[in-house]
Structure formats: C-alpha cells, structure tokens
Design a protein around this nucleic acid. Structure first.
Lengths: 329, 329
DNA sequence: CTGAAAGCGCTAACAC
DNA sequence: GTGTTAGCGCTTTCAG
C-alpha cells in the first residue's frame, strides 16, 4: 500500500479511501491511485484491514453434518445470501457432536467472525452456545431450535408431520408406525408431536411398539424397520421423520420384498431430488431450504447492524408433495 | 492479552508463548498465566495473530456447485482433512461460472489464505487460476483438470467410462447413446474419450446422433434424452456421464414409460446413496470422494511446507458397482 | 480534498 | 526462563 501511495504521489490514507470509497477523492487523484494499483498488482490485505477496522466481514457457520445433502443445500443457501451482502462464509462441521462443535465454534470466535450461524448438535445448549452468547457475537440458530434466548429459524415441524400422519389416517390406516430421528433435538421432538397429535385427534392411542428410534442413522433405521416389518402384526403404514430415516426405511422394505403402497403405505418428512423418480413416487413434506438460509442471514445481518429486539423464532412452512407412496393414485 | 499479562505478573510475550507453546515456560508461570486467562475469559485474536505471524492457518476452497451432493461430500472430505491438520476452511461457491469464480478466488486471496483448493469452472484457466498462480499462493486443483502447471487431483475418467461402455458392448449392445456433461471441462472430455475408445476397440463408429449434450444440466439432459428416445430407431443402451445427467435421463425414461433394462440398458458415471434403492438398481462407476479430498489436502500442505517439486496429477480410481440397470441379473 | 499519526492485538527477534 | 521492542498492513480521527 505504501508503494501504491508513493507511485501515485499521495498518502496511504488516500489510497485507503479510494479502495473503500470511504470519502470523496478528487477524480484525478483517484485515477492516479488506480493506475498505481494496476501497475503494482497491489492486492489489499484483508487481515490487516480487519484488525484495524475491528470487523472481519466474515460469518461463521457451524453445521451438524455436511455430508447430509440437506445441510449441503443449507450451506449453499446461506453462502449465497451472505456473499450478496458482501460477507464471506467460514464453515465448520460439528459432526453432530458437542465436543467437535465446541472446537468449531471456538475457532470461529477466535477468528473474530462478525456473526455466527449454528445448526446445533444435540446438547449444544449446555456447551457451545452459552459461550457464544457470552461473547456477545450475533448468533442465529438454524434448522433445530433450542431452549435459549436467541434468534432461531427452522422448518415447520409439528403441523407438517401431523399432515403427513393425517393423510394416512384419512386413507383408513390405523396402525401407523413412525421412524424418529435423533432423540433430544427439537426437530425430532416436534415432528413426533405432530404424529402423536394426529393420532390423538382420531382417538388412537400411540402404540410404543410402533415407535422406532432411528437415531438419525440410516443403518439403525434400516434394522429397526426390518425388525418391525418382519413381525406378524406389522403396521399398514409408515411415516419417516427425516431423509436419513427414509433411506433406511426404504432399504429395509426392499430387503423384505415389501412393496409400497400395496404392502405398506409410506410418507416422509424431507424431500429428495429423486422423490419422483422412485417407484412409487414418494409423498413427502419438503423443507424450503432457500428460505430458511435467507431468513437466517437476514436476522443475523440485522443483529450485526445493531438491531436490538426480542429474539425471534421463525418456522418456515414445508410443502406437501402429494405423490404415490401413500397409496393414492 | 495485556490484562492477562498484568494479572499473571508477566509480559505479553510470555502470555503469547504459553498460548502457542512456542518456547519453554516455567510451570509455575504457566499456571499463573492460565489462571489469568481463565479469570478474564480471555480469547486470542486470530486476526491480529495472523497479521503478526504472516500466516492465517486458513485454506480457501472454491467449489463449482455446492448444491451438487457430490461437491458437498467433497467439501466435507476436505474440511475434515484440513481440520485434522489445524487449518480452517473458507468456502466460496463459484456457481460454475468464471466471473463469480474470480470474485470468490479474489476474496480468498485478499484474505491471505495460506493455500487454495479450486474445483475450476469451465474457462477458469484463463481467468482466476493464472492470477492465483501469480501470487505464489500454493494451489491444488480438484475434480477437474486443466492444462496448467499445478497440482491436480481428480477421479479417474477415461478408463472408468470405458469400462462402463464395454460392459454394455459385452452384453451385445451396438447402438449405445451417451449423455455428456458440461462441454469444455476435462471430466466431460475424458469420460467421453472413454466412451469413444470402447466403441473404437470393437470397430464401431461413433454415431453423432447418439451423442447428447446434457450440459451438466438436469433439464437439458431430460429434454435431449426424451427427444432421442422418442425416435423410431432409438438406441438399446445409454451411458450417463455424471450424476446430474443421470437424474435427467431417468426422468425422461420414466416420462416415456420406458423400462430399464427391458427397453433400454443403462449405466452411469457417479454413484448415489439411493443407487441400490432404485428399481432397477443402478450399475455405476463411483468416485472415491474421501480419497480425492484427502489427497488434495495432502498435496497442498506439502506445498505450504515449502515442498518444491514438479506438479503432480493424480487420478483416483473409481469403483465399478455392478448392479441391475445394465441388464445383468 | 488530503495528510499525519496513532493505534488494532499479536509475534518474534534480540537482549538479559 | 523472561522481558523489550519493533513491527505486521491497514483504518480513522484530527488537522489543515
């Protein structure tokens, strides 16, 4: 920067101002500075800039599981919204585990991110999140909610899962099994609540034998479903509570040679790119990932700009894709 | 840091050294410093540290399309390898377009990343990449190769695509169509080469009418395949050259009511989580994303540590998953 | 409209 | 084993 200033015959401060457009600069001067920049191939040092300015224009994102295509799309949506706003994204994968999540969020905080977006791991509200809040760094939670006082954005869970279940009930099913995701996270709890209330509304008691703990792990779900569907009084319908559970469930049904919807009707929370390629096409509740990401960024930027207000919790509606796996034609 | 030093009764330099383990510190002193850190809730400022130390412990990754699950897994693999090595990842999505790719890589360079990994967009060798090389920042290319002198890691393309095609030939097919990805990138060129050489080996000429330009766009592929398969002398087999092309192809076949493999045999490059859930199960060449990511990180770290040697080009073998869509039982 | 100067918070010689 | 000191490259009052 000193070189540029010297060549252009101005001070470093002027170079800084033409670079950032932070104050009026005579057009002749500006041209000279720009020529000097061009000539030297000068490139600004954002690290030094961040140190001096006290902000980094960087947002940290801690994501539960980057391999899950759902989270992949979420990262994409967040990245796009941030880059439109002139921010850069740093991502860390928490592997859905509090310990590595803490490592990730600490590292982000050390890097002086201007704000953080976290897709919390189970138990996060007792480990990583309080520390973030203590630093005063603007924070918004994404995907899963926790019982903390901060902005949160996620998909609508309860009524979506309820609609899926009700659809099955409307078709006459009475023995409907459910494959739950990871215990202890809000999405599982809420989606399960949607399932139970749908049943309760029709005066049907929840049969514990029809509640499968898939643990958000494909293999576990597959085993559980396999076991359940091998019994003599197996359910006539299944509802899967997230995409990993769906894969596990479908594998189990396939292994057993059970066909959908003839042998068992099926509906699921979360949509796939191949949902209507599958035979039969999957009836599913699809999350609006774009909106979730954009909303999270919006809330965060507002906080960064000093917006003081009660934390908000936003539920983004899902879309019900009515296809064939439920048994409708 | 000043506070910590004062409370512990030492100099800032000693605090720095206990923080980084950069020199021997008396254990009593260290304890006092650690106590002071605990007491003040001090957190190191990595930005200042980077400026002073002249390195950021940060690696930039420019990825062509974060929404593609394949790239999602790649990011995940890279992130893991880097975090094991104590580095942090900054990702930018180039949307497979040179202009936004340039924006991404410039921003990464401005942020003083210690190294860059780039999944180049088409045309990148004339825009973003030369500038990166000019700065002297260690660089490794991933996924797609370009004609430049730098480290590159990607999946094996030619012989993988050739094996897929040969398998179809072995089954007696002679009219085999191919759905190509984005023109102008190495993976498309090389995979197509695998297809043509397989045909040439059997003395079969490439029929231009059977070569579809899918442009790595699902919709385009769907249209092309739909058109081709609606003709009277349609091919008896199809090979798809990447995952997006596969989705498009399957949609078209489904829309036409053509069944695989009875009406048309099908094999594809790239595997899916649902490949063996699909009916029929898809015969595919699967990339080893983990190895690609880990290898790229390995090459990069070696460069960062000052390793001087001829740039390497590494092809990671694919795995042939022999399933049913090819028509075997 | 432009420059001078004081840092931002840390690291790394260099002394002791 | 520890402290002193000089920056790292930029932003931003404060003057002019």
């Amino acid at each position: 920067m000193g070189d540029v200033a010297r060549i252009a015959g101005v001070s470093a401060s002027t170079v800084s101002h033409v670079l950032n457009g932070t104050r009026k600069v005579d057009s002749g001067t500006r041209l000279r500075v720009e020529a000097a920049i061009e000539e030297t191939g000068y490139r600004r040092n954002v690290v030094a800039r961040s140190l001096a300015a006290g902000r980094t224009n960087t947002i940290g994102l801690s994501i539960a599981a980057l391999t899950n295509p759902y989270f992949g799309s979420l990262v994409h949506a967040v990245e796009r919204a941030l880059s439109d706003a002139g921010y850069v994204l740093i991502v860390g994968d928490s592997h859905d585990h509090v310990t590595s999540e803490k490592r990730v969020t600490d590292s982000l905080l050390d890097r002086q991110v201007d704000g953080m977006i976290v897709a919390p791991a189970a138990g996060s509200e007792r480990v990583a999140l309080p520390d973030i809040i203590r630093t005063g760094t603007p924070l918004v939670l994404i995907d899963r909610g926790v019982d903390l006082d901060c902005d949160q954005v996620g998909p609508e869970n309860v009524s979506s899962a309820r609609s899926l279940t009700e659809h099955l009930l409307d078709l006459g099913h009475r023995r409907i099994a459910v494959v739950r995701g990871l215990a202890g996270i809000s999405s599982t709890t809420e989606r399960f609540e949607g399932y139970t209330t749908a049943l309760a509304d029709r005066g049907i008691a929840v049969d514990p034998g029809l509640v499968l703990e898939g643990d958000s792990n494909t293999d576990v779900a597959e085993r559980e479903v396999h076991a359940l569907m091998s019994t003599s009084d197996r359910p006539t319908a299944l509802v899967s509570l997230n995409n990993a559970m769906t894969i596990g469930t479908l594998k189990a049904l396939r292994a057993l040679g059970l066909s959908i919807p003839a042998d068992v009707a099926f509906v699921c929370y979360d949509d796939f790119e191949w949902s209507d390629l599958f035979e039969p096409k999957l009836t599913a509740a699809a999350q609006d990932v774009e909106t979730i990401g954009a909303t999270a960024v919006d809330l965060l930027l507002r906080r960064i700009r000093g917006h003081e207000a009660e934390p908000q919790r936003i539920s983004v509606p899902t879309t019900f894709h009515h296809r064939n796996s439920c048994g409708c034609t």
